[in-house]
Amino acid sequence: MGVAGCGKSSLGAALAQAEGLPLIEGDDHHSPASREKMRQGIALTDEDREGWLATLGQLLQAHPHGAVLTCSSLKKAYRDRLRGACPGLRFVFLEIDRANAGQRVAARAGTHFFSSALVESQFATLESPVGEAGVLRLDALLDLATLQQQASAWIAAQESA
């Protein structure tokens, strides 16, 4: 979880492969209307995210043996909604600063629907999950292999506890 440009999709794919779990790419489940709003640089509202969060919760429930979900989960209410659908859900928070997030989003402008104009709104919406149970904070600027290893080690430690 984290703001646009933090590396959710990259880490999610690496983690799903390393853990032998299915990957649920949250961006794939936004409605066409929400995708168009984001393409135009219009921030989504809680109402826009309602159906999306319901769908993600159902997808998590469809994988009782586990899955990796990439999802911004910017607000505690969103995370709590997903936790309600999937008790025991854990979050890897990829923390990044505004400048680096903006650069990353701008660099993928031709291949992703998310407008770089929305990066600031992502930071304005973000309610840090640091301190919540079941959350691992990682530095999004670390290389992908290190991030995946740290996340996998944390998952293993959680499962053995």
Score class of each variant (00 low, 15 high):
residue 64 P to G: 04
residue 92 V to S: 01
residue 95 E to H: 12
residue 81 R to Y: 07
residue 121 S to Q: 11
residue 101 A to W: 08
residue 124 A to V: 00
residue 35 R to Q: 13
residue 126 L to R: 03
residue 123 F to C: 04
residue 129 P to R: 05
residue 111 T to C: 06
residue 56 L to V: 04
residue 106 A to Y: 09
residue 69 L to K: 02
residue 95 E to Q: 15
residue 62 A to E: 10
residue 77 A to G: 07
residue 57 G to D: 11
residue 58 Q to G: 15
residue 106 A to S: 15
residue 120 E to W: 02
residue 106 A to E: 14
residue 102 G to R: 06
residue 76 K to V: 13
residue 122 Q to R: 04
residue 73 S to F: 05
residue 95 E to P: 01
residue 39 R to T: 09
residue 121 S to L: 05
residue 72 S to G: 08
residue 122 Q to P: 01
residue 103 Q to F: 03
residue 105 V to Q: 02
residue 109 A to S: 15
residue 51 G to D: 11
residue 77 A to K: 13
residue 68 V to C: 09
residue 46 D to S: 07
residue 124 A to F: 08
residue 127 E to K: 04
residue 42 I to R: 15
residue 91 F to L: 14
residue 78 Y to A: 01
residue 87 P to A: 02
residue 88 G to Y: 08
residue 98 R to L: 14
residue 78 Y to L: 09
residue 117 A to H: 13
residue 101 A to C: 11
residue 65 H to E: 14
residue 99 A to Q: 15
residue 77 A to Q: 13
residue 78 Y to N: 03
residue 120 E to V: 10
residue 51 G to K: 07
residue 119 V to W: 07
residue 58 Q to I: 02
residue 117 A to I: 00
residue 79 R to S: 07
residue 105 V to R: 00
residue 66 G to Y: 13
residue 121 S to T: 11
residue 79 R to Y: 12
residue 88 G to L: 08
residue 77 A to M: 09
